[in-house]
Structure formats: C-alpha cells, structure tokens
Amino acid sequence: MSDKIKIRRILTEAFSQGKTEVLDELMTEDFVNHNAAPGMDTGRDGVKAVIRVERQGFPDLKVEIIRDFEDGEFVIQHVRLTGTHTGTVFGVEPTGRTISWNEMHIVKVRDGRVSDHWACNDLHVLLTQLGRMTPPDTSAFRQAAAGA
C-alpha cells in the first residue's frame, strides 16, 4: 500500500470519525507538528487534542480529500473540512450553521509512518463563518477588476 493511501487514514478515520487511536499507528514516536499553535503539544497528543476540539464544535465533521500525491518521502494533501456547528468551539456558542474550510497538509513519511507535519489552512474563512472575524474589505479588488 502506498504511503498516500495509508496516510489518508489520519483524515478519514481520526478527523472524520474521531478514532484518534489510529494516530499511534500512523505517526512515529517522535512525530512533530510544525504548525502547532503556540503553547500546544507538538506531538501526537497535540493532534489528538485538535481532533477533540474540532469534533466538539462539529460532531459531524467530515474531511474530503480534494487531491493528494506523493513526492519522494512527502505526501501532500489538499482537503476540505465540513461540519455543522452544534457545539462550542473557539469560544463560539453553536450557530447550527454548516461550516466549511480548506487546508493543505505536507507530511514527511519515515518507515511508513508520519514523522513531520506542516500545514496551511483557511483559518480566516473558518473564523469568519463562526462570526469571530469580520470579512476583509475587498472593494479595492472589485474596483480594480472592473477597471481592467
């Protein structure tokens, strides 16, 4: 089985189903999440905490893999997360709205297990949908496009 297929289980089983125990199988003992929030555990336990927080706010959270590919010892994933905001998350009481945001993940694989993780996510999109952030003023872009 390719690393890409194996690593998908982190998203499909751990994040989408809440089965955090699969992380012990799929991540090395010395795993490092290079994008952990300040003060957060950068190891597997930190990822388990992220899953618990996200699933508390979005119990029906699902991760759709838009595209993924392998490049040597790296697996790159573009994903969309979607869930109904029925629990408190990031200090926001439930809105009942369906929330969706995108993420990009790059993982380094060593001996068939993830040893390192880097990510970019649409946190501003998530926080805007939750009402924690005001959307940016994009009128200048619209005006420039109209004048082009």
Results as ranks from 00 to 15, higher is better:
102 N>H: 13
134 T>F: 02
46 G>Q: 03
71 D>E: 15
105 H>G: 08
62 K>N: 09
89 V>H: 13
144 A>K: 01
63 V>E: 12
30 D>I: 03
69 F>N: 09
16 S>L: 00
37 A>G: 07
125 V>M: 02
78 H>F: 10
74 F>P: 00
28 T>C: 04
120 C>M: 15
25 E>S: 09
143 Q>D: 15
45 D>C: 04
145 A>N: 08
67 R>T: 14
127 L>Q: 10
29 E>F: 05
47 V>G: 07
41 D>C: 03
21 E>A: 12
23 L>H: 11
106 I>L: 11
45 D>H: 11
128 T>F: 00
26 L>P: 01
98 T>C: 02
85 H>V: 07
22 V>L: 06
43 G>M: 04
103 E>Q: 15
56 Q>Y: 07
26 L>T: 06
119 A>L: 03
112 G>N: 12
47 V>H: 08
12 T>A: 11
52 R>E: 14
56 Q>C: 08
143 Q>K: 14
61 L>A: 05
113 R>N: 06
131 G>C: 05
35 N>H: 11
69 F>R: 07
136 P>W: 07
57 G>L: 03
141 F>N: 06
9 R>P: 00
135 P>M: 15
124 H>N: 13
25 E>Q: 11
35 N>Y: 10
129 Q>A: 10
41 D>Y: 04
13 E>P: 01
28 T>S: 07
4 K>D: 07
97 R>I: 04
148 A>M: 04
140 A>R: 10
66 I>G: 03
36 A>E: 10
89 V>N: 11
138 T>M: 10
129 Q>Y: 08
25 E>C: 02
121 N>T: 14
75 V>I: 00
127 L>C: 02
112 G>D: 13
14 A>N: 01
64 E>F: 04
125 V>A: 07
28 T>F: 01
112 G>K: 13
110 R>V: 12
70 E>R: 11
92 V>L: 05
102 N>V: 03
126 L>P: 01
118 W>F: 10
36 A>K: 12
85 H>F: 06
58 F>S: 00
23 L>V: 06
117 H>L: 09
76 I>Y: 15
43 G>R: 13
106 I>K: 13
101 W>N: 06
93 E>L: 00
104 M>D: 07
111 D>F: 04
20 T>M: 01
30 D>T: 15
123 L>Y: 13
123 L>N: 14
144 A>Q: 06
147 G>M: 11
18 G>E: 02
21 E>I: 04
14 A>P: 01
97 R>W: 03
99 I>F: 02
114 V>F: 05
146 A>K: 13
109 V>F: 08
14 A>S: 05
110 R>F: 05
116 D>W: 04
120 C>R: 13
112 G>Y: 12
74 F>W: 11
60 D>M: 04
109 V>E: 09
105 H>A: 08
123 L>E: 14
46 G>R: 06
36 A>S: 15
132 R>Y: 06
6 K>R: 15
138 T>S: 10
51 I>N: 08
121 N>C: 12
102 N>S: 11
33 N>Y: 02
55 R>I: 00
80 R>M: 11
108 K>R: 15
113 R>W: 03
21 E>G: 09
141 F>M: 05
9 R>S: 01
2 S>W: 07
57 G>S: 09
92 V>M: 14
52 R>K: 14
56 Q>N: 15
69 F>D: 12
28 T>N: 03
51 I>K: 09
